[in-house]
Design a protein around this nucleic acid. Structure first.
Lengths: 204, 204
DNA sequence: CGTATGCTCAAACGATCGTTTGATTCTGAC
DNA sequence: GTCAGAATCAAACGATCGTTTGAGCATACG
C-alpha cells in the first residue's frame, strides 16, 4: 500500500457507485478505473476479473450488514416479551442505516439489481451469504407467529422481502421532502416498513 | 407481411424472452435475431434501433395489461359494496394472468428489471404508461380507506407495489410445487398477495 | 413486360468491451 | 547499495457490440 486510500478500496468504492448507476454490464472497467483514478489494468491485477470484483463489492457490504442484523436479532430472539415489531426492526434498521452511512446508499440499489438479474452464479453467491441470516429470522418469526402454517409463513416473508427491497432501494415514488432531514426520513421509512410488514405478517 | 408470423412479431417475442433472461444490455441483437430466425439488420429496419425495440416490447404488453386492469377496476369502482380485496384483485389478477398466457410470463421479469435499472428515459416511458392506471387505483383505495392521510396511503401503496413486483416477477423463494398445476399456483399467489396487501393497506 | 416498393440478406463499419502483456517504478529486507 | 517482489503504467490483443450499406429478391400495380 502506498496512499491513505489504497487502490483496492478506491476501486471498490467506484465500482459500488457505478454498478448502482449503470448496472453490472453497463458499467465498463474504463469508466470505473477512470472514476477511481487508477490504471485500467488494476482491476484485473487486484481482483482477477470483473466478475470477481462484483462479488467483492457484495461481500464487503453484506458481511457488515448481516453481522449487524444478527447482533440486533440476538438482543431480542427467544425472549418472552419480544414483539414482531422488534424482530422486524432488527431486520430493517441495519439495512436503512447502511444505506445512510458513507455512500453505502448505493449498495441497496446494487442489491436490488442483483435480485432483478437472474444470473445464477450471483444468486448462488447471494444465497450463501444471505440464506443463513434469513433462516435465523424465519425461526424467530415462526416462534412469534405459531398459528401460521410453515408454508403460509414462507409466503408472507417472501412478500415482506419484496416490500423491503423495494423501499430500501429507493425505487418507489416516496421521496424525502426538503423539510425533513435524512435522519428523519430514515426513521419514517423504518416506521412505515415495520408497521406494514407486521400487519402483513400477522393478519389472521 | 409474408409469413404466418411476421418478422416484426418474431423479433418482439424473441426480444421479450432474451431481455428477461439476460437483461437489456446483456442480450445482443445477434443472439436476438438468431433466436428469432431473422436477419441481423431486421431490427434496425423494423424498429430503428435497439432502444426503440425495448420500448415496443414494453408497450405491447403494458397496453393490454393496463386496459385489462382498468376494465376490472371499472366493475367495482365507486360501488357501495366494493371491498378492498375487490380493488386489489382488479390490480393483481390481470398481471398474474398475463404472466400465464403465451410466454408472457417473462414480461414481468422484464418489467422488474426495468424497475431496477434506473434508466431515466425508460422510467419516464413507464411512468407515462403506468402512472395513469396507478392514479385510478389510488383514487379508489382512498375512497375505501378514508381514515388514512394521503401521505400515509401513498406510503402503503408504495410498499404494496414492492411486494407485488417481487412476487409477480418470480423473484422469491416460493416456487410452484410439482403437485399443483400452474393454474392453481397462480390462484394461490393471487390469494396470498391480495390478503397480504389488504392487511398492509388497512391496518390501523 | 417494366418497374416501383417493401423486405431480406451477407458483409462490413467504427466503437467499445474485458483482458493480457511487458516494461517501468516503487518498496522494504538484507 | 542491492536486489527481489509488489504495484502501476501505456499499449495492444481479440472479441463482440449496435448500426449501416448496397445488392438481391419478392410482390403488386401500370
Amino acid at each position: 500500500m502506498n496512499s491513505p486510500i489504497s487502490t483496492k478500496e478506491r476501486i471498490l468504492a467506484a465500482a459500488e457507485s457505478l454498478f448502482a448507476q449503470r448496472g453490472f454490464d453497463g458499467a465498463s472497467l474504463r469508466q470505473l478505473t477512470a472514476s477511481a483514478g487508477v490504471n485500467l489494468a488494476a482491476v484485473n491485477y487486484h481482483f482477477g476479473s470483473k466478475e470477481k470484483l462484483v462479488e467483492q463489492v457484495f461481500k464487503r457490504r453484506l458481511d457488515a450488514l448481516n453481522q449487524h442484523r444478527l447482533a440486533e436479532l440476538a438482543k431480542v430472539a427467544g425472549r418472552a416479551d419480544t414483539t414482531l415489531e422488534d424482530v422486524l426492526a432488527a431486520y430493517i434498521r441495519p439495512a436503512l442505516e447502511l444505506s445512510h452511512e458513507g455512500n453505502g446508499s448505493l449498495f441497496m440499489r446494487v442489491l436490488a439489481r442483483a435480485f432483478a438479474e437472474h444470473d445464477d452464479t450471483l444468486r448462488q453467491f447471494l444465497s450463501d451469504n444471505y440464506g443463513h441470516v434469513m433462516r435465523q429470522f424465519t425461526l424467530e418469526f415462526a416462534r412469534l407467529l405459531p398459528h401460521l402454517a410453515k408454508a403460509e409463513l414462507y409466503w408472507r416473508i417472501d412478500l415482506v422481502t419484496g416490500a423491503l427491497t423495494h423501499a430500501m432501494s429507493g425505487f418507489g415514488m416516496i421521496q424525502r421532502k426538503d423539510n425533513v432531514t435524512e435522519q428523519q426520513h430514515r426513521e419514517q421509512t423504518a416506521a412505515h416498513l415495520i408497521r406494514f410488514a407486521a400487519a402483513g405478517l400477522s393478519h389472521p
